[in-house]
Structures are given as C-alpha cells and as structure tokens.
C-alpha cells in the first residue's frame, strides 16, 4: 500500500528497509541499523539562510557575522546526532487491537519505551493513521493508539509504521520503519436492517413464539448504557453498531433457549458475497444476543451450534476469513 504505482527503485528501497527492520522481531528497538535521517525542507531553508548571511558577512567583512554564521552552522551539525538520539534505543511494541466490525475504527495500541531518560517527542504514522507520543525523563514509557478505519473484513496488519522525530530544531527528520507482525480481526459489517432468519433455521423443539417473537432489531431501547471495555460482547446491541453508532448495551438479558443453524444458502436474497456475509453476521449477533445456541453452515463446512463468547468469536473469525470469490 506504500508502493502504489511505484517506480522499481522505490520497491527496491522498501525491500532494503524491510530487510533491515526484520532484524528484530517482537519488540522492535531502534538501532543505528534501522534509523534513517535526512534534512527537512525547513533544514534546507535554514542552510540557505546561513549561506545568505555568510555572503553578507564576506561582503562587508563582518568578522562577528562570520562568528554568528559559524555558530549557527555548528548548532546545525550538533542537531544531527541530537535528532538521531531522540529515536535511538526507543523500544516499540505494537499490541493486538480488539476485534472490530468492518466500518468501525481499529485502535492499534503502540507501546513506546525509552532506553535512556530523555525528552523524546515522536510522531507515529501508519497507513491511514497518525499519532504523537512524548517520552520524558519522568515518563519513560507511553502507550498511544493508532486509529485506522476498518474497511475490509479479514485478518489485517497495521502496515508500515513510521516513527519519526524532528526535535530539537526541525532541520532534520530521523525516522525508523517497521512492519509489525501483530494482526487484528475485522469481522464482516452486520447488516443494519437484516430480515429475521427463516423459520426453518430453528432446530430445537422450543422454536416458535420466543425466537420468532423477538426478532433482531426489535430490542427495547428504554434502558441503554454505553459499553465498557472488558464487558462481554454478547450484550452489545449490534444493531446500533451496524448503523454506525457506539457500542451500547441493554440491561435486559434475553432468556436462553433454542438452537438455530444459520445457513449460507438462506442468505441468497441479500446479494453478493459481502452482503450475504453481513446478513449472516447480523443473524449470528442476534442469535448470540438472544442466548440461543447457534451454528453456521457455510459452503466449506459447518460450525456446530454452541453458545458463549468464545464460540461467537470463532464464528465471526470464520466469517471474516470467508474467501471473497467463493459462491
């Protein structure tokens, strides 16, 4: 995604950078091997300014003008290692973000730790995400989040992460590149106005009134509250999420009853593969919300009915990895 329409040299450059970055897996510590530094536009402007001032000092034989220019030039030279030192020895750890549905925001937690106490303002850039982090002598480690739009379902990686710094003067930018190996799940987007699953899906004897009575999308919104991290996903009202709203819960617990087998073949009316997966996802969430035991039948296999968080995630992962071209 970086070398989009790229020239061959650009690909070669990235291969070279990847080779160097691969030297440390897991926690990535910046060393001289993975640290790049180049002047910025501001640095070029400063150099031009110094050149003009130097000419001025020469033309008017200003000895102290020379002294001033030389001092500024020496500061600029000192700024090179000073800029690099902001990044050297910084350990970068990209954690696993919580699974989200397509269309939500994926929050990658990035843990930054400093080797030695130092003032280190860092700028993090990943495809579609930006963040800043400030390490200080009293704050040796900091966690920031890189927020990406979760667009396509599946198992995704962050992509190329660039951690850069321009401190102290902004004349040089030191940066490091890494391709974190941690991955995140993006489940298919649940269909907002999904029709109820066909009656034939209900397997057990106590089908009927209950499971058909409370159809997905008919929750009572009387008492809702925001979802907090750590609470079971089962209680989240996915309908709201699917409309782009926040994760909300209702305090009402649906009674546990029944078993459904949600079939790929029943989603034929939804449209293409993605739309069918969306409908299946909505059904899965509805079934989970109603405490039904649910199973999913896909063209390439059947997930037997079960209950619980773990089962839900297993099913959703399976849906996330569903081959896009399959019919």
């Amino acid at each position: 995604m970086i070398s989009r329409g790229a020239a061959p040299w650009r690909e070669g450059l990235e291969r070279w950078q990847r080779r160097r970055a691969a030297a440390s897996a897991g926690t990535f510590t910046v060393t001289h091997r993975t640290l790049y530094i180049l002047p910025t536009a501001a640095g070029a402007g400063f150099a031009l300014t110094l050149f003009v001032l130097w000419l001025l000092a020469i033309n008017y034989s200003l000895s102290l003008g020379h002294a001033l220019v030389f001092w500024l030039a020496a500061v600029a030279v000192m700024a090179i290692p000073a800029t690099a030192a902001n990044l050297r020895g910084v350990a970068i750890d990209v954690g696993e973000p919580e699974a989200v549905f397509a269309g939500e925001r994926l929050r990658w937690p990035v843990m930054l730790r400093a080797g030695a106490p130092r003032f280190r303002p860092l700028e993090l850039t990943a495809p579609g995400a930006q963040a800043v982090a400030l390490l200080t002598p009293s704050l040796g480690s900091v966690r920031v989040f890189l927020e990406q739009n979760a667009e396509r379902r599946g198992l995704v990686r962050l992509g190329r992460l660039r951690v850069a710094t321009r401190h102290p003067f902004g004349w040089f930018r030191a940066w490091t590149l890494l391709w974190p190996t941690t991955s995140a799940w993006i489940y298919p987007r649940p269909e907002p106005q999904a029709p109820p699953w066909p009656a034939a899906a209900s397997l057990a004897e106590e089908t009927g009134a209950l499971s058909q009575g409370i159809r997905p999308g008919e929750e009572d919104f009387a008492d809702l509250r925001p979802w907090r991290a750590g609470e079971p996903l089962r209680r989240v009202l996915w309908k709201i999420v699917a409309r782009g709203g926040p994760r909300m819960l209702s305090r009402r617990e649906g009674p546990a009853a029944g078993t459904v087998l949600l079939r790929w073949n029943d989603t034929l009316g939804a449209g293409d593969v993605e739309a069918r997966l969306s409908r299946l996802c909505a059904w899965v969430l509805a079934a989970h919300h109603q405490h039904l035991a649910f199973g999913v039948e896909l063209p390439d296999g059947v997930l037997p009915p079960d209950r619980g968080e773990a089962h839900l995630h297993a099913v959703l992962r399976r849906l996330a990895l569903f081959p896009p071209e399959a019919a």
């Binding site: 500061v75 000192m78 102290p168 003067f169």
Partner: peptide, 21 residues
C-alpha cells in the same frame, strides 16, 4: 525541559564554532 535541551545543544556548538571561526 525543551529550553534546557536546546540550550545544551547550543552550548556544545560553541567550541566547534570557535574552530570554524
């Protein structure tokens, strides 16, 4: 903290500025 950092870099540059001079 920033001012101290910058001040230190500027102070280190002095001997080298003298050499250049």
């Amino acid at each position: 903290r920033l001012d101290r950092d910058v001040g230190r870099t500027m102070a280190w540059a002095i001997p080298f500025a003298l050499l250049l001079f």
